[in-house]
Write a protein that binds this DNA or RNA. Sequence first.
DNA 1: CCATTATCTTAAGCTGGTGAAGGAACGGCG
DNA 2: CGCCGTTCCTTCACCAGCTTAAGATAATGG
Lengths: 378, 378
Amino acid sequence: MKERRTGAREAVLDAIRAAEPLSRVELAAMTGLTEASISTTVRKLLGEGLVVETGRTPTGGKPRTLLRLDPAARIAVGVHLDEDVTTYVLTGQTGGVISRMTRPAAPAGAGAADLVRRLAADVGSLVDGSGVDRVRCLGIGLVGADPRLARDHDLTEATGWPVLLENAATAAAVGEYWVARVEAARPFAALYLGSGLGAGIVAGGEPLRGSHTRAGEFGHLCLQVDGPACWCGSRGCLEALAGPQVVVEAARADPVAAGEAGLGAARSTVADFAAVARAARAGAPACRALLDDSARYVAAAAESLVNLVDVDLLVLTGPGFAAASFVYAPAITARLGPADARTWHRSVSVTVSLAAATASATGAAALVLQEALRSGQQ
Amino acid sequence: MKERRTGAREAVLDAIRAAEPLSRVELAAMTGLTEASISTTVRKLLGEGLVVETGRTPTGGKPRTLLRLDPAARIAVGVHLDEDVTTYVLTGQTGGVISRMTRPAAPAGAGAADLVRRLAADVGSLVDGSGVDRVRCLGIGLVGADPRLARDHDLTEATGWPVLLENAATAAAVGEYWVARVEAARPFAALYLGSGLGAGIVAGGEPLRGSHTRAGEFGHLCLQVDGPACWCGSRGCLEALAGPQVVVEAARADPVAAGEAGLGAARSTVADFAAVARAARAGAPACRALLDDSARYVAAAAESLVNLVDVDLLVLTGPGFAAASFVYAPAITARLGPADARTWHRSVSVTVSLAAATASATGAAALVLQEALRSGQQ
DNA sequence: CCATTATCTTAAGCTGGTGAAGGAACGGCG
DNA sequence: CGCCGTTCCTTCACCAGCTTAAGATAATGG
């Protein structure tokens, strides 16, 4: 009935994650496994402390005992190296943030060794400060890799934890999958607006990575055949037409918009974009117009994505959408409407991530947990 | 080492399909399975007649016995209901076409029952005429579903064979996967140009289908935010800007081009498009200009696809590309070049299907075989 | 206290894989 | 010719993971 792609262990953890609390009978029904099989796998998980029994539901006969994930049974650290800040997140099994920390990004001048030392120290103090036992932490997920961190190996040595690299959009998608409890079988895409535009696509429970782990370059969908040159070397890319850099540059170029948003000395793209979005939200017309213009393009690109991979859920995430989803979400919905109703007979939900600003870091940590817990090697 | 997503049976068949002939030792190395395991699965496959031993390679010690698929051990019928013609293909395990048949499409006025009767009769005579035993045929793959065939059930009843529905582009991709022996792990996309434009995307050995089996609507990538209205209800879709219908209409509207291509009474889009392509190939400048214009858009859309799902192989297929790939393939290659070299550090191969005209029908048959052989139920 | 109902566990068996040891087919060499 | 070593292929014992079938457990209501 329901697909069973790998072991019972994974299926059970996924089911509980998506719809906790659950009894064993319900688990059997959802995963397609036997009650016998559920019984034994659950016993194992109880033994490892990953799952806890909590409460019971009365029925006609023996009441069901409900199962939950123990949020702090295993944890992982997510690190997001952004242009101007580095975000650290400590995440438990349920995707919930146990503690977090933000620090200004390491100066561009600092050497590789310095950067590694700094990250290792921050991660260590985050874990220690959280009160959770160090051995429960399974690893570090790292997003937005700095070229100085080409060898994740270094950070592994410095901290003793395994390190997993991922790109921001894919990590954000996985984070969403955990935090927002997307059903395992449902394909969806997370659109990420940070200093650029990316998409994390999850199909069949697994993120789509492609040949070179470089799937999801949403910002380089072409929206104008002979459009302006993009830094990537092509022309007419979404990012070159309506990316955050373009919005920020346009705002700086227009004295009215710059005034509305209070753009002073050059800061990071992310910070400036957020300033424009805040101004627009407060009613500033010039800033609003800039965002509306950007949203037209983003919406068209979103439609392309939906038509190509056929998802019926789009999650907007990342700092950019955290600040400006009030413009982009309606634009996307409006753009998708006519063709969906007339031709495709589908209805795509567009939602905004609940934790858009930390989505990537959370997702990176979730990926580490997922890898480790599914297979069960300690 | 190599991924092993499901059973040994599937892995072995896939490996042989991709690189026959192979010895058992080589199979063990390629699949990551034990030689012991290979031995037993191969014995089973030999028993079923799916695989045959053929020849041996001398080595230092005991020579290897080579294994091949027996092309005619199991067969399936692929049917492609196109606008104006219906193509029937009888395909063996290796994807090779055993026999084929083309008939004019059933008149639009005919009823559902008529259509089913006609298809059943054609399929029956194809199988019987091929000399292959009827019981070796595992089913019928049907592409380009006519609304009158909404219930594939009817055709199953009329023929006694299971029927599988698929869309043209996905089927073409699977066909390519078989015929051109694409490696199992390599993600790729097949672009299909028929009466419309579609893409079949294969990632992780499985075609990407999406939420509603509607992935791959390549023709509805947006290439111009406020472009011309498309029949789908949106604006600026590739198909509305540069699809085959648009090319044909433009050719008809331009007396020079119409003359070059010899466009007379209205025929099908596919036939007219092929006429334009033939003229262009023969040197007709107006037709060539029309195709060049279309190719600019298709190339940009192909770039979007590559950037979004990260494939490094694009196969052009379908009757449209069969006739006009000499224009489209170079255009796509040229468009991808700059950004691939500068930013993505990848090199995308663009190839033309060897059997572009029958790709869909072959692919549909291949899908039936794949389903049946992998699991081994009869 | 016992029948009823429903949940959960236990025990035996099947399937599909592994690891290690042994048998089979060759060429080369005395 | 017989005896190497070499390499390929098979056999056998075993294990993991899941299923089926039967039984143990915990509540409810007469």
